[in-house]
Design a protein around this nucleic acid. Sequence first.
RNA 1: GGCGCUAUCGUCUAGGGGUUAGGACGUGAGAUUCUCAAUCUUAAAACCCGGGUUCGAUUCCCGGUAGCGCUACCA
Length: 554
Amino acid sequence: MSENVSNPSAKSKSAKTPANSTPVRVRFAPSPTGHLHVGNARTALFNWLVARQSSDGVNVLRIEDTDVARSEARYEDQLVEDLKWMGIDFDEGPNEGGDYGPYRQSDRLEIYRDYAEQLLSEGKAYLCFCSDELLEADRQSAMAEQRQPVYVGRCRSIAPEEASRRRASGVPCAVRLRVPEHPIRFHDLVRGAIEFPSEVVGDIVIVRSAKPGPGPEGESFVAELMASEVASGALAQNVLGMPIYNFVVVIDDVLMKITHVIRGDDHVSNTPKQVAVYEALGMPVPEFAHLSTILGADRERLSKRHGATSIVSFREMGVLPEALVNYLALLGWAPTGGTKEIFSPAELIAEFDLSRVTPSPAVFDMEKLYWLNRHYLKQAAPERIVALALPDFVKAGYLPNAIGEASDEVRQWFARVVALLVPYVDRLEQLPEKAKIFFAYDAAGAVANPDNAEVLGAASCAAVLQAFYGKVRSEQAGKFTAERFKEIINEVKAEAAVKGKDLFHPIRTVMTGSHSGPDFDKLIPLLEDGAALPLPVHVKSVRERVEEFAGVKI
RNA sequence: GGCGCUAUCGUCUAGGGGUUAGGACGUGAGAUUCUCAAUCUUAAAACCCGGGUUCGAUUCCCGGUAGCGCUACCA
């Protein structure tokens, strides 16, 4: 399968095509070792935006699962789902297929090995027999002498025949790239020209040696190789091990014809090493764009320690994907003019520009995300919000588990509750807490609550309560309407000779347990309608509330 | 330690040799509302330090400092 690589069917074509008309091909290449984090999500988003900016742009998903010990299939599924939730899709990948697969590195091991052998035979790479101990000693002395801790080149001049002989006799060895002695420079769309002196690269390892004892992942790779070789009737043994990231990433990007490598800036120091691999391969170097690190409020690299950072956690909090996408786009990028804040995906595609991405690290600001989320929450279709809010209410025990079987009355009532409460929250998970005014009315608690002390202790309060209790009690049976309730308030106002806050606060406290909350016009009908519904937690009616409150306060 | 990257309000950023240094989040005040939330108006709030270059630097150059990243036979 590696043959089609050295035999480039499309190479002559792309070599002739002017660079600027070559279709843009970008890739997102995560390791499935955990949940998708905001940093990676932003990288995925920027890649997606760049791909979608041109009609023939291609977005590739490549799974970097060569770290067998840490990679898990379930994380790959989760990753794909998180990306999909954000609206980021791919044209090629493990699930989409494509002409440049396979798209999981674990399925590409033979390709890497073949390339390593090719470089070896061309003399662009050589075998290194240095032991770990030797290498470690080298590093120590380099550090002590304040030199760059790079390989000293001990095995560089071993004659190829001698090296092959040793290898054939089963001596473990690694493959090192013969890195030429010239400064390595590359262009970065975000940072401009970057140059590294060649001393900092050294002859990097591109394929590990097969270590019998340690490294569990080394073993498994060897086992896999052996199996495939036995199957294909090839070499009976191999002293080489797992290929190194900086090598495989280049092979993959070359083979997948990636034109723009957009990734986190923790890779800038890796880039010269990778450029050296491109040169050894005789392949053109793509454009790079290194995105700045996302930091926490303490200016340290964002991590779980800072709370919610995974995409799932935001989703579970009730953050809308369009809010997250909008926020992430603004983290490190701003449109020309720098005043527009609200962007739909289509607008992002139209206005996004890699060269306008800031190189400096950015602090993740939860408050601004919430602000954006509030905006999109208000914007969203009510049915959608209701559907998203439902599980939290079921979980809180406020709605029946079998909500699907709930009556239309229950559904409609719930939709009204959600509509009433949404302006009070900045993420959906806060809704059940706000809904306590319906489901968790507690007169005794309200009276005991210090927050209500001032209202309940006011001189005019007793008169208002007495009048209010009387009015409600003398009302004939039936639901209170918003209109009737308003009339009652006016009657209380006249009878107790109290108005404004002194009038409303006590009444509101009786009705909800708090002196602040939604309009009575909407609240009262919801209370009365809810009381008539067969819900797991009974919603107390206006009368029930009044009696309960009267029982603890005069 | 070495190498690299970065540096505008608290935060995200726009801007750029001469500007009242712009916007947004957050914060304060006011308006509205019975109250809170929402909404509207408004205020306070920034060019890291030191040298150059220049008539003039926040902007360009150099140095310092700080932060971050890399420094592996991890990815």
